Computed example of a mutant assay.
Amino acid sequence: MSIRPYKKRNNELIPGVWEIDFRPEGRNGPRRVLKYPEEGTCSRAEAESFEKECRRQNVSQLAKRHINPAINTILPEYLEWHKLHRADRTHKDVLYSLKGLTEVFGALPVSRISQGDIIRFKQRRPDHPRATNKDLHYLGSIISWMVKNDYAQPLPFKIEQMPYTKPIPRPPTADDVEAMMKEIKDPDKQAICIMMFEAGTRWNETVSLRWENVELGEGVAMVMGKGSKWRAVLLPKRVLNIITPNKQTSGWVFPNPKTNKPYGSFKTLFKAACRRAGIREIHPHGLRHRAATDTLSATGDLRLVQRMLGHADIQTTTIYTQVDMARLRLAAEKVLHHRGRQEK
């Protein structure tokens, strides 16, 4: 076993909260990590006392383990693990998906889940393949966790996803984005928009930016993307002009002054700003789409766009090649012009 200070997803330490890492089944068994205490704080001595209690209970806990339990039976333990090891937004997504999943699969042990059950689940919402696929993905994750922790055997079949074609992004025009930002008077909120619009950062990456990950002299920041992967992004000049006078050594770069925590959403802000500007509504993620499309148009370098966006797979980035049809038409015209000159 080991005890270490508990860290949030952004590596922020929480004083008085501890992470206890141990292997209930011995040295070669699966690991388990507990957050202690669940609420409030305690001293290291109290955490060590709890660790000793865990040691004493390991044998009895293993003896009580119910092999092949119903999914509902094991969910509390799974959710405890998931909350500790996954981002808050992902955890909320799982909790939402469980409402539908438990209605169909909750009372079943993994050994009794059949392909027919999967098909019936898909038929509940035939017109919403994306949401259904997300639910099935989370079901697969729960089953994988149960298998890894010896609560179940793997399914004898693969959970097939519903056919789904990701729609082509339709980013707002740069002029519309600028018009909307003029209607946003708060400098910090403007800076958040500019980060997504010019650096192509995701919403969570932007609002979760911390001063300890910012190098103003170099004009660079480290952001944590999906899968807890860090990447460097350039800070736009307009952002530097806004944040430099407020430089601090730690804490959030763009805190909500009401809560002193990151902002939750800008959807209402964007909707009101677009209405005042007299333009169609813009979604916050549309700014990232605009950044990717413009960068591809300016450079033609798909790998560069992949790096800027933080995509693990370049196939995810190729969707922007379908957006940039104007550049493709221009290239086709140049080819025709070139052929015409050769024929002469």
Rank of each mutant, 00 (worst) to 15 (best):
D188L: 13
I159R: 08
I142A: 12
G219A: 03
K166T: 15
A199G: 08
F197C: 03
G227S: 08
A174K: 15
Y151H: 11
P167T: 09
R125A: 09
Y138R: 11
E215T: 14
A191H: 06
Q161I: 04
W211N: 09
M181T: 02
N149P: 04
R125F: 04
T165R: 12
A199E: 10
A174N: 08
N149G: 02
P169G: 12
N213V: 06
R170H: 11
E160Y: 00
P129R: 06
E198C: 07
A174P: 02
K134P: 00
G227K: 07
A179W: 04
P169S: 05
L136Q: 03
K185R: 13
S208L: 13
E205P: 05
L155R: 01
N213Y: 11
K122D: 00
V220T: 13
D175A: 14
P187K: 05
D186R: 11
R210N: 12
A174M: 12
R120E: 10
V223I: 13
L136M: 03
K189Y: 02
E205N: 09
M162Q: 06
K185A: 09
P187E: 06
R120K: 15
K166C: 05
D135L: 00
Q161R: 15
K134A: 04
M222L: 15
Q123P: 00
D188F: 15
M162T: 01
I142M: 12
R124D: 01
M224N: 09
D175Q: 12
P163I: 09
T132Y: 01
T173S: 14
E218L: 15
K226Y: 06
K166E: 15
E160H: 10
T173V: 05
D176Q: 08
M196V: 03
I142E: 08
Y138K: 11
T132N: 02
C193V: 09
K148L: 11
E198N: 07
Y164S: 10
P163K: 10
R170W: 01
P126M: 10
R125E: 04
S141G: 08
K182Y: 01
E183V: 05
N204L: 10
E215C: 12
Q123L: 06
A179M: 09
I184L: 06
H128Q: 11
